[in-house]
Design a protein around this nucleic acid. Structure first.
Lengths: 236, 236
DNA sequence: CTCTGTGAAGTCATTCACAGCG
DNA sequence: CGCTGTGAATGACTTCACAGAG
């Protein structure tokens, strides 16, 4: 077990592996090899072994990985063995949709409050679990009282940095940002931005290309043998 | 002007640059240097020049870039000078939220239809522009009639691959996927997956670490001079 | 003199390839 | 044997550093 800095690409993949393992487990499958896993998401098997190798030696040579065992390890590594309490700032369409989104409220993540500055909305409740909409001014107090450790920013771009500053002041260390804005966070605070506009515009670029003649490129003629693990598109 | 394969990281950044240029333009600013742009999003200025350099020589030495000029170029490069028509599959919470989301419906992207398989929902309309909810079975016909060129998948994971297949059969080449699933697309079809679960779990990993002592590492003592362009977190 | 455009160098990520365990 | 774990090789992306245009 090393102690290197783990890239976010790796942690993203760990999350995906875990999801797959959960499916395997409920299908009653007991063991899985890195090769089998790799085929699920078109990925190289060495990638998976490397990713896991950062955290320990979980496999058995000649066999592969025990599904339940690896599942537990990944759950622990990702910190999903402890519950997380989520606050969503912005009770607009996106914020309220996210509050209800299963997979967001799922399992270890519980949305405990929404915040807004609109007097009309404050005092209201969202969804079947009646998540309260609170005044964004009270965010610092609520974060502490409710032990919120993850914040979601779902406000317009121009308000995003201000909101982030409030969130950071309240001591939250992990933020998922949906505002199309470049936020400056201080060291020790992790901001992940999901920028829908950029995603769409990037797709638009792809559409604008003259079909980008897919370069199948035979490479150095001799060794093009095992070009089987086709990776059409790197989704991970 | 070269003709290399452009990485998605580059196209994502181009989108961000464009957004920034639009802001600069409406602030009445006429020219901007790569250095100034780089400071906005903590990024290296050479990165910006490289990104732009793939597509032409847009700058003026000693000056920088003319905002309006560069804006037009990027708009064209990203294919945002032509309108895109978007179909959203899945009229659940997320799908309907996205249909209303400004920035999604904004400017060149118009959501023209939602699709669902729920008889209760089919025939209904969403939002002020009354976007119709149609039977997902009719997707192929509607895509052609309405010339939809971008699809959004907002259905549960287990249905996602099936929906993607239908979408591809209808001839759509660009897909934004919100289902937490590894989709297999055929060559020539671009799928971008936004996986909220993975984003959250990745944040959870970060929280689980013992504060990951931020390695400020003085590096090879001598040449640590210009370590000013702090890149706390690579958000792009 | 300033700022672009770009090879060269550097850093980070993925894939290969194989020793060695079970 | 089959499959893991991992150095070494390759490839991708970023940053440096500087020639040269304005």
């Amino acid at each position: 077990m090393k102690r290197e800095k783990i890239s976010e690409l790796t942690t993203n993949r760990l999350s995906v592996y875990l999801r797959c393992l959960n499916e395997l487990a409920s299908a009653g499958i007991k063991t899985v090899s890195s090769q089998e896993l790799a085929e699920q998401f078109n990925l190289n098997s060495a990638q998976i072994r490397k990713d896991l190798g950062y955290f320990g030696e979980f496999g058995v040579r000649g066999i592969g990985y025990f599904v339940d065992d690896l599942r537990e390890h990944l759950t622990k590594i990702l910190g999903l063995d402890r519950p997380h309490r989520v606050g969503i700032v912005g009770a607009g369409r996106l914020g309220t949709a996210l509050a209800n989104y299963h997979g967001f409220s799922k399992s270890t993540f519980t949305v405990v409050a929404l915040f807004d500055n609109d007097k009309e909305k404050i005092g209201g409740h969202i969804g079947p679990s009646r998540i309260p909409i609170l005044d964004v001014k009270k965010i610092e107090k609520v974060v502490r009282d409710q032990t919120i450790d993850v914040a979601v920013i779902a406000v317009p771009a121009r308000a995003a940095q201000r909101v982030l500053n409030q969130i950071m002041a309240a001591g939250v260390k992990a933020v998922l940002n949906f505002a199309p804005a470049l936020l400056k966070a201080r060291l020790g605070v992790k901001v992940k931005t999901v920028d829908l506009t950029t995603s769409l515009e990037s797709l638009s670029y792809f559409l604008a290309r003259p079909q980008e003649t897919q370069v199948v490129s035979a490479r150095r003629s001799g060794s093009a043998r095992k070009r089987v693990e086709t990776r059409t598109s790197r989704q991970l």
